[in-house]
Amino acid sequence: MADINLTLNTDLARDILSGFIKSEITRVGLSRAVIGLSGGLDSALSCALAVAALGRENVLAVRMPYKASSKDSLDHAQLLIDQLDIPNKTIEITDMVEPLFQLDPDISNMRKGNIMARERMIVLYDQSEVFKGLVVGTSNKTEILLGYSTLYGDSASAMNPIGDLYKTQVRQLSRAMNIPAPIIDKPPSADLWADQTDEKELGFTYEEADKLLYLLVDQRYSPQEAVEAGFNKKFVDTVTTRIRRNQFKRMQPPIAKVSNRTIGYDFLYLRDWGT
Protein backbone atom coordinates (compact mmCIF):
# COMPACT_ATOMS: atom_id res chain seq x y z
CA MET A 1 0.00 0.00 0.00
CA ALA A 2 1.26 3.46 -0.89
CA ASP A 3 2.32 5.65 2.01
CA ILE A 4 -0.49 8.19 2.29
CA ASN A 5 -0.23 11.00 4.79
CA LEU A 6 -3.38 13.06 5.33
CA THR A 7 -2.03 14.84 8.40
CA LEU A 8 -2.82 18.56 8.59
CA ASN A 9 -1.12 21.49 10.21
CA THR A 10 -4.12 22.08 12.46
CA ASP A 11 -3.17 25.62 13.51
CA LEU A 12 -3.00 26.71 9.90
CA ALA A 13 -6.23 24.84 9.06
CA ARG A 14 -8.07 26.53 11.92
CA ASP A 15 -6.83 29.99 10.93
CA ILE A 16 -7.71 29.63 7.25
CA LEU A 17 -11.12 28.05 7.86
CA SER A 18 -12.25 30.38 10.62
CA GLY A 19 -10.98 33.32 8.54
CA PHE A 20 -13.12 32.05 5.68
CA ILE A 21 -16.27 31.94 7.84
CA LYS A 22 -15.61 35.43 9.16
CA SER A 23 -14.94 36.81 5.69
CA GLU A 24 -18.00 35.26 4.07
CA ILE A 25 -20.33 36.46 6.81
CA THR A 26 -18.99 39.94 7.51
CA ARG A 27 -18.57 40.91 3.86
CA VAL A 28 -22.36 40.77 3.40
CA GLY A 29 -22.88 42.97 6.44
CA LEU A 30 -23.74 40.22 8.93
CA SER A 31 -21.94 38.99 12.02
CA ARG A 32 -23.68 35.74 12.96
CA ALA A 33 -23.95 32.09 12.02
CA VAL A 34 -26.54 29.33 12.42
CA ILE A 35 -25.54 25.68 12.59
CA GLY A 36 -27.55 22.51 12.84
CA LEU A 37 -25.86 20.51 15.57
CA SER A 38 -26.48 16.81 15.10
CA GLY A 39 -24.30 15.51 17.89
CA GLY A 40 -21.84 14.26 15.29
CA LEU A 41 -18.33 15.33 14.47
CA ASP A 42 -18.75 17.38 11.29
CA SER A 43 -21.27 19.81 12.73
CA ALA A 44 -19.29 20.00 15.98
CA LEU A 45 -16.19 21.07 14.08
CA SER A 46 -18.03 23.60 11.90
CA CYS A 47 -19.58 25.02 15.05
CA ALA A 48 -16.23 25.33 16.83
CA LEU A 49 -14.73 27.03 13.76
CA ALA A 50 -17.65 29.45 13.63
CA VAL A 51 -17.14 30.32 17.29
CA ALA A 52 -13.43 30.88 16.63
CA ALA A 53 -14.41 33.16 13.73
CA LEU A 54 -17.28 35.14 15.20
CA GLY A 55 -17.24 34.82 18.99
CA ARG A 56 -19.44 32.61 21.14
CA GLU A 57 -22.45 34.93 21.30
CA ASN A 58 -22.72 35.05 17.50
CA VAL A 59 -23.24 31.36 16.79
CA LEU A 60 -26.66 29.74 17.19
CA ALA A 61 -26.66 25.96 17.54
CA VAL A 62 -29.92 24.29 16.59
CA ARG A 63 -30.71 20.73 17.62
CA MET A 64 -33.46 19.15 15.52
CA PRO A 65 -34.27 15.70 16.85
CA TYR A 66 -36.83 13.27 15.46
CA LYS A 67 -38.62 10.98 17.88
CA ALA A 68 -36.44 8.03 16.87
CA SER A 69 -33.17 9.99 17.08
CA SER A 70 -30.72 8.49 19.49
CA LYS A 71 -30.51 10.14 22.89
CA ASP A 72 -26.74 10.20 22.49
CA SER A 73 -27.11 12.62 19.60
CA LEU A 74 -28.91 15.15 21.76
CA ASP A 75 -26.56 14.63 24.68
CA HIS A 76 -23.44 14.96 22.57
CA ALA A 77 -24.73 18.15 20.98
CA GLN A 78 -25.39 19.44 24.49
CA LEU A 79 -21.81 18.63 25.50
CA LEU A 80 -20.55 20.92 22.77
CA ILE A 81 -23.10 23.64 23.51
CA ASP A 82 -22.01 23.61 27.16
CA GLN A 83 -18.35 23.62 26.28
CA LEU A 84 -18.64 26.49 23.82
CA ASP A 85 -21.31 28.28 25.90
CA ILE A 86 -23.29 29.33 22.83
CA PRO A 87 -26.91 30.34 22.18
CA ASN A 88 -28.96 27.26 21.29
CA LYS A 89 -32.42 26.00 20.44
CA THR A 90 -34.00 22.57 20.24
CA ILE A 91 -36.71 22.25 17.62
CA GLU A 92 -38.15 18.76 17.26
CA ILE A 93 -39.09 17.86 13.70
CA THR A 94 -41.33 14.86 14.46
CA ASP A 95 -44.61 16.76 14.12
CA MET A 96 -43.44 18.32 10.87
CA VAL A 97 -42.40 15.15 9.06
CA GLU A 98 -44.85 12.57 10.45
CA PRO A 99 -47.85 13.78 8.42
CA LEU A 100 -45.85 13.27 5.25
CA PHE A 101 -44.60 9.84 6.33
CA GLN A 102 -48.15 8.78 7.08
CA LEU A 103 -49.36 9.51 3.57
CA ASP A 104 -47.57 6.37 2.42
CA PRO A 105 -47.46 3.29 4.64
CA ASP A 106 -44.75 1.80 2.41
CA ILE A 107 -42.36 4.73 2.79
CA SER A 108 -38.73 3.56 2.81
CA ASN A 109 -36.03 4.50 5.29
CA MET A 110 -34.22 6.34 2.54
CA ARG A 111 -37.24 8.50 1.74
CA LYS A 112 -37.77 9.20 5.42
CA GLY A 113 -34.12 10.11 5.82
CA ASN A 114 -34.28 12.52 2.89
CA ILE A 115 -37.45 14.14 4.20
CA MET A 116 -35.90 14.62 7.64
CA ALA A 117 -32.73 16.10 6.17
CA ARG A 118 -34.79 18.55 4.10
CA GLU A 119 -37.02 19.45 7.03
CA ARG A 120 -33.95 20.32 9.03
CA MET A 121 -32.79 22.53 6.17
CA ILE A 122 -36.16 24.37 6.32
CA VAL A 123 -35.83 24.89 10.07
CA LEU A 124 -32.23 26.10 9.77
CA TYR A 125 -32.97 28.60 7.02
CA ASP A 126 -35.92 29.88 9.05
CA GLN A 127 -33.69 30.30 12.10
CA SER A 128 -31.17 32.01 9.86
CA GLU A 129 -33.74 34.77 9.33
CA VAL A 130 -34.64 34.94 13.04
CA PHE A 131 -31.04 35.07 14.26
CA LYS A 132 -29.82 37.19 11.29
CA GLY A 133 -27.02 34.72 10.63
CA LEU A 134 -25.89 32.62 7.68
CA VAL A 135 -26.18 28.83 7.68
CA VAL A 136 -22.75 27.25 7.97
CA GLY A 137 -22.38 23.93 6.17
CA THR A 138 -21.17 20.72 7.75
CA SER A 139 -20.39 18.39 4.80
CA ASN A 140 -16.87 17.01 4.57
CA LYS A 141 -14.93 16.21 1.40
CA THR A 142 -15.38 12.46 1.76
CA GLU A 143 -19.16 12.57 1.83
CA ILE A 144 -19.37 15.26 -0.86
CA LEU A 145 -17.26 13.11 -3.20
CA LEU A 146 -19.16 9.93 -2.36
CA GLY A 147 -22.50 11.73 -2.60
CA TYR A 148 -23.41 10.54 0.88
CA SER A 149 -25.87 13.34 1.55
CA THR A 150 -29.36 14.57 0.78
CA LEU A 151 -29.55 17.10 -2.02
CA TYR A 152 -31.11 20.33 -0.67
CA GLY A 153 -31.01 18.73 2.77
CA ASP A 154 -27.83 18.47 4.80
CA SER A 155 -25.89 19.62 1.73
CA ALA A 156 -27.62 23.04 1.79
CA SER A 157 -25.72 25.93 3.34
CA ALA A 158 -24.48 29.47 2.73
CA MET A 159 -20.84 28.42 2.99
CA ASN A 160 -18.92 25.30 3.89
CA PRO A 161 -15.70 25.58 5.89
CA ILE A 162 -14.94 21.85 6.04
CA GLY A 163 -15.82 20.69 2.52
CA ASP A 164 -12.16 20.36 1.53
CA LEU A 165 -11.26 18.20 4.56
CA TYR A 166 -11.51 14.43 4.42
CA LYS A 167 -13.29 12.75 7.32
CA THR A 168 -10.01 11.65 8.89
CA GLN A 169 -8.80 15.26 8.69
CA VAL A 170 -12.04 16.44 10.30
CA ARG A 171 -11.24 14.06 13.14
CA GLN A 172 -7.69 15.38 13.45
CA LEU A 173 -8.71 19.04 13.46
CA SER A 174 -11.52 18.27 15.92
CA ARG A 175 -9.03 16.79 18.34
CA ALA A 176 -6.85 19.87 18.03
CA MET A 177 -9.86 22.09 18.69
CA ASN A 178 -10.86 20.16 21.81
CA ILE A 179 -14.17 18.79 20.60
CA PRO A 180 -15.47 16.54 23.42
CA ALA A 181 -14.06 13.01 23.16
CA PRO A 182 -17.39 11.13 23.01
CA ILE A 183 -18.19 13.02 19.78
CA ILE A 184 -14.81 12.20 18.25
CA ASP A 185 -14.77 8.59 19.31
CA LYS A 186 -18.24 7.39 18.30
CA PRO A 187 -18.93 5.81 14.89
CA PRO A 188 -20.14 8.41 12.36
CA SER A 189 -23.88 8.19 11.75
CA ALA A 190 -26.61 10.17 10.01
CA ASP A 191 -28.86 8.89 12.84
CA LEU A 192 -31.82 8.63 10.52
CA TRP A 193 -32.79 5.24 11.92
CA ALA A 194 -31.71 3.08 14.86
CA ASP A 195 -28.15 1.68 14.71
CA GLN A 196 -27.44 3.31 11.37
CA THR A 197 -23.75 4.03 10.83
CA ASP A 198 -22.18 5.62 7.78
CA GLU A 199 -19.56 2.94 7.42
CA LYS A 200 -22.09 0.08 7.61
CA GLU A 201 -24.23 1.76 4.98
CA LEU A 202 -21.33 2.62 2.68
CA GLY A 203 -19.70 -0.79 3.07
CA PHE A 204 -16.20 0.52 3.82
CA THR A 205 -14.44 2.65 6.43
CA TYR A 206 -13.75 6.34 6.10
CA GLU A 207 -10.09 5.72 6.69
CA GLU A 208 -9.89 3.42 3.65
CA ALA A 209 -12.07 5.71 1.55
CA ASP A 210 -10.06 8.82 2.45
CA LYS A 211 -6.78 7.29 1.39
CA LEU A 212 -8.21 6.13 -1.91
CA LEU A 213 -9.97 9.46 -2.56
CA TYR A 214 -6.75 11.30 -1.79
CA LEU A 215 -4.95 9.35 -4.52
CA LEU A 216 -7.78 9.57 -7.06
CA VAL A 217 -8.74 13.20 -6.50
CA ASP A 218 -5.84 15.10 -4.94
CA GLN A 219 -3.00 13.14 -6.53
CA ARG A 220 -4.80 12.47 -9.84
CA TYR A 221 -4.15 8.71 -9.85
CA SER A 222 -6.05 6.71 -12.47
CA PRO A 223 -8.21 3.91 -11.01
CA GLN A 224 -5.68 1.43 -12.42
CA GLU A 225 -2.81 3.23 -10.65
CA ALA A 226 -4.81 3.12 -7.40
CA VAL A 227 -5.15 -0.66 -7.77
CA GLU A 228 -1.41 -0.88 -8.43
CA ALA A 229 -0.85 1.17 -5.27
CA GLY A 230 -2.53 -1.62 -3.30
CA PHE A 231 -6.28 -0.92 -3.27
CA ASN A 232 -8.81 -3.67 -3.94
CA LYS A 233 -10.18 -3.36 -7.48
CA LYS A 234 -13.82 -3.77 -6.48
CA PHE A 235 -13.41 -1.06 -3.85
CA VAL A 236 -11.79 1.27 -6.38
CA ASP A 237 -14.65 0.61 -8.83
CA THR A 238 -17.30 1.26 -6.16
CA VAL A 239 -15.72 4.55 -5.16
CA THR A 240 -15.02 5.82 -8.70
CA THR A 241 -18.60 4.99 -9.70
CA ARG A 242 -19.97 6.79 -6.67
CA ILE A 243 -17.89 9.88 -7.45
CA ARG A 244 -19.15 10.00 -11.03
CA ARG A 245 -22.78 9.20 -10.33
CA ASN A 246 -23.06 11.84 -7.62
CA GLN A 247 -21.65 14.74 -9.62
CA PHE A 248 -25.24 16.08 -9.83
CA LYS A 249 -25.25 16.67 -6.08
CA ARG A 250 -22.19 18.90 -6.35
CA MET A 251 -23.63 21.28 -8.94
CA GLN A 252 -26.32 23.81 -9.59
CA PRO A 253 -28.87 22.34 -12.02
CA PRO A 254 -27.79 23.01 -15.61
CA ILE A 255 -29.70 25.70 -17.47
CA ALA A 256 -30.61 25.01 -21.10
CA LYS A 257 -28.78 27.59 -23.17
CA VAL A 258 -30.75 29.48 -25.81
CA SER A 259 -29.64 33.12 -25.45
CA ASN A 260 -26.26 34.73 -26.08
CA ARG A 261 -25.57 35.05 -22.39
CA THR A 262 -26.61 32.38 -19.98
CA ILE A 263 -26.25 32.05 -16.23
CA GLY A 264 -23.60 29.47 -15.45
CA TYR A 265 -21.95 29.48 -18.92
CA ASP A 266 -21.09 33.02 -19.91
CA PHE A 267 -22.50 35.11 -17.09
CA LEU A 268 -19.64 34.58 -14.68
CA TYR A 269 -19.21 36.29 -11.35
CA LEU A 270 -18.08 35.04 -7.98
CA ARG A 271 -20.58 35.09 -5.16
CA ASP A 272 -18.31 37.65 -3.48
CA TRP A 273 -18.85 40.08 -6.37
CA GLY A 274 -18.70 43.67 -5.09
CA THR A 275 -17.65 42.75 -1.55
Binding site: N5, T7, L8, N9, L12, A13, I16
Partner: peptide, 11 residues
Protein backbone atom coordinates in the same frame (compact mmCIF):
# COMPACT_ATOMS: atom_id res chain seq x y z
CA UNK B 1 -4.44 31.55 -3.69
CA UNK B 2 -3.29 29.30 -0.87
CA UNK B 3 -3.28 25.57 -1.59
CA UNK B 4 -1.58 22.41 -0.50
CA UNK B 5 -2.36 22.36 3.23
CA UNK B 6 -0.57 19.38 4.78
CA UNK B 7 1.47 18.74 7.91
CA UNK B 8 4.15 21.31 7.01
CA UNK B 9 4.54 24.65 8.72
CA UNK B 10 3.38 26.56 5.62
CA UNK B 11 1.09 26.03 2.65
Amino acid sequence: PGRGLNDKEKL
